[in-house]
Design a protein around this nucleic acid. Structure first.
Lengths: 110, 110
DNA sequence: TTGACATATTCTGATATCGGAATATGATAT
DNA sequence: ATATCATATTCCGATATCAGAATATGTCAA
């Protein structure tokens, strides 16, 4: 048997650098496929294929608008990975709760 | 071209469920290969091969003790993934709620 | 040195995955 | 209906990756 299919596994889905790039391109919010194609430097079919994988593991959702299709991040799956790596937080020494830092920074800005 | 080699990429290294199992088996601290083989249900050669990958991306280090070899987690690589997923923390629903609470509190306090 | 034990490596075959090119689907407008 | 634009899918060939079996390396003890 070979590796678990990328389709059913969030860890595998983000193992691909291009897919991480797509997710990063969506950090600002919704974007059409065309906008993603411009943001990351990939061809349209490549982006569509990566989006399909991300859709199948529920890392993104899409919404049709005219002939375009807007994608947005559904971050819960990423949170699962964050939590998994967080299991090992006790093994790195400084700054255990980075997320709290982020929240603190946000709060500092009125 | 196919996917980036698992050898040079921490994301790929933990994309494999067996390798995550090995890491989880090491949460308690150092363990010999034999102990890992018993903890996860894999053959010895499989475990050795997965350990090799984990070594190459620096997720584990090893230390010889007699004829055994003890492995331990080097968690910094996991921290990189933790940080990457943390980039999307603002998009987690629960955290957003929490942020809303924090902001509401701020507004309440003059 | 020989034997026993622990771990690592090499080989093989099956499958998954990628990029690229071509093509298909779907929506709107004329 | 047809053209056009946006996106999705299919086909291909090359490569990566896995599990399993066999074998190699290395360490200690008798």
């Amino acid at each position: 048997m070979a590796r678990a299919s990328t389709t059913s596994d969030v860890f595998n889905a983000i193992a691909e650098p291009s897919r991480r790039a797509v997710l990063e391109a969506l950090r600002g919010g919704e974007a059409s496929v065309g906008a993603i194609v411009e943001a990351v430097e990939l061809t349209q079919p490549q982006v569509s294929k990566h989006l399909k994988v991300l859709r199948e593991v529920r890392l993104v959702t899409s919404r049709p608008v005219g002939k375009e299709r807007f994608y947005r991040i559904d971050a819960d799956g990423l949170r699962a990975i964050h939590d998994w790596t967080g299991m090992f937080a006790a093994m790195w020494n400084q700054r255990l709760d980075r997320l709290d830092d982020v929240l603190a920074d946000l709060v500092q800005q009125p």
